Simulated assay, not measured.
Amino acid sequence: MMNATEEFDPAVRSILDAAARRPVHERRVSVDGASLSGALAAADADGRVPLIAEVKPTSPTTAGTRTEDPVDLARAMVDGGAAALSVLTEPEHFGGSVENLERIRAAVDVPVLRKDFLLEPGHLDAVKADAALVIARFVDDVGEMVTAARERGFEPLVEVHSGAELETALDAGATLVGVNNRDLASLDVDLSTFERVAPGAPADVALVAESGIATPADARRMREAGADGLLVGSAIMAGEPREATEELVYA
């Protein structure tokens, strides 16, 4: 799927180059993972906005770094009503680690998504999680990654940015799809991306709106466009995590 000649923002190219250098783990993990899509549906049934709150110490598109214990940040998000957590494990550009994910997953009672740039099946074996992100734009065979994730017990969240990528995800058997409002080639954000792409998904596919959701109005807009869940990082990490989470969960 990934075109080696495609022009990406230099920060994205640096991330992908670092990901390509990572070791492939030979020992396959096996997980009895909690259902991310089930947690989103349960939050919806409970009258809450189904929110995946993201523990992201820093990123190429944000200023500064959060230095608090990631476990404390994660607990604050869960206390604020998050249905699930996303934890960055990319170390060089996002300040994440597999150790952070391990500690957070042991400390909370909601599903934990591993957010990283995973390019091949062996990259899945670095750490146990409940779900794993598969970015359609960056992997050569989306179906292989979806199957590999499920074989290990992860629920795959397949991320797309266009109608063509959505078709690729659906052909790969994805049942949980994230539509990223950020164009990873340019890093530009446009909430109308979700509104354009979402109608192409069948009713039995759960859709998560990702990136650019900063206010309750943004959350309502994405929900009205058909989002079954929202993934929010920067807007929560920029403030007090519990309060910022509550503001979106009860939008």
Rank of each mutant, 00 (worst) to 15 (best):
A126K: 03
A206P: 10
A126G: 09
V205K: 12
S186V: 01
A169F: 09
D171V: 10
A126I: 01
S192Q: 13
L207D: 01
P156V: 02
K128N: 13
A174I: 07
V197F: 09
A185F: 04
V146K: 00
A129P: 06
D204F: 08
A169Y: 04
H161N: 14
F138W: 03
N181Y: 05
A209T: 01
F194R: 10
L184T: 02
V146N: 04
R137M: 12
L207S: 07
I135H: 10
S186D: 05
L133D: 06
L170S: 05
D140P: 14
G200T: 12
T147A: 15
L184N: 01
N180L: 09
H123K: 03
D130A: 02
A185W: 02
A172L: 10
A149I: 04
V134M: 10
A209C: 08
V160W: 12
V189W: 06
V134D: 00
V134Q: 01
T168W: 11
L170V: 09
A149T: 09
L176S: 04
G178H: 01
D125R: 08
A131I: 00
V142I: 15
S192D: 15
L176Y: 06
L191N: 12
T175Y: 07
I135L: 07
E210F: 03
L184M: 09
V127P: 06
A132K: 00
V160Q: 03
E167R: 12
F138T: 04
R137V: 01
E165N: 07
V177M: 03
A201Q: 12
P156N: 13
D188M: 03
A172K: 00
V179S: 08
E151F: 06
D125I: 11
G178W: 02
A198H: 12
A203M: 06
V189R: 02
G163F: 05
A148P: 06
A203Y: 11
V179I: 15
V177S: 05
A198W: 14
L166R: 12
A169V: 09
L191K: 02
E165W: 10
P121N: 00
P199G: 03
A129H: 12
G173Y: 04
L187H: 11
A149R: 04
A164V: 13
K128G: 11
L176R: 03
V179D: 01
G143R: 01
S162D: 14
R182H: 14
L191R: 11
